[in-house]
């Protein structure tokens, strides 16, 4: 076993964005991005979880994977929503979490904000472009 290396990150808060552009189940990307988002909560970083293009299908209501025998991970988004609520309520913690859907991607797929398993901010592309440009780290999968 190699020696563990750790960097000193105390007191640094950055803006992380997680970009989801792929549909669930056809590929595994969505599931593993979720794992990355959840880990980052422990570091008390700002996080914007963004759904663009086919990524919006990840949070569509009514997913039932029983017949394809795969793990239904849409429920995990509920945990992200809870983390977000914790961050919003805790005034001592400097951590802002946002869950954002791009309006154009949503509408192109015949969906509306009511179709999602979590509460989302729906932003038009021009506004989302501004939010994206403000980030320190963008992780896409």
């Amino acid at each position: 076993m190699s020696e563990e290396i750790e960097f000193d990150t105390a007191g640094i808060t950055k803006k992380f964005m997680y970009v989801n552009r792929k549909a669930p189940y056809g590929t595994i990307y969505a599931l593993e991005v979720l794992e990355a988002v959840l880990i980052s909560a422990a570091f008390e970083q700002h996080a914007a979880i963004v759904f663009i293009d086919d990524g919006v299908y990840q949070i569509k209501k009514g997913q039932d994977t029983a017949a394809i025998n795969m793990k239904n991970f849409s429920k995990t988004y509920g945990i992200i929503e809870m983390e977000k609520e914790d961050a919003d309520e805790d005034e001592d913690m400097d951590m802002v979490w946002r869950i954002i859907v791009e309006k154009e991607s949503m509408e192109a797929r015949g969906l509306s904000a009511d179709d999602f398993v979590v509460d989302v901010e729906v932003l038009p592309s021009a506004e989302l472009a501004k939010v994206m440009a403000e980030q320190d780290v963008v992780i896409s999968g």
């Binding site: 663009i52 293009d53 791009e102 154009e104 592309s125 472009a129 501004k130 994206m132 440009a133």
Partner: peptide, 15 residues
């Protein structure tokens, strides 16, 4: 893929 279109839609002018 639509990566180019999505990038152009979601990038600020000048970037």
């Amino acid at each position: 893929r639509n990566s180019l279109d999505s990038c152009l839609r979601l990038s600020e002018k000048g970037s």
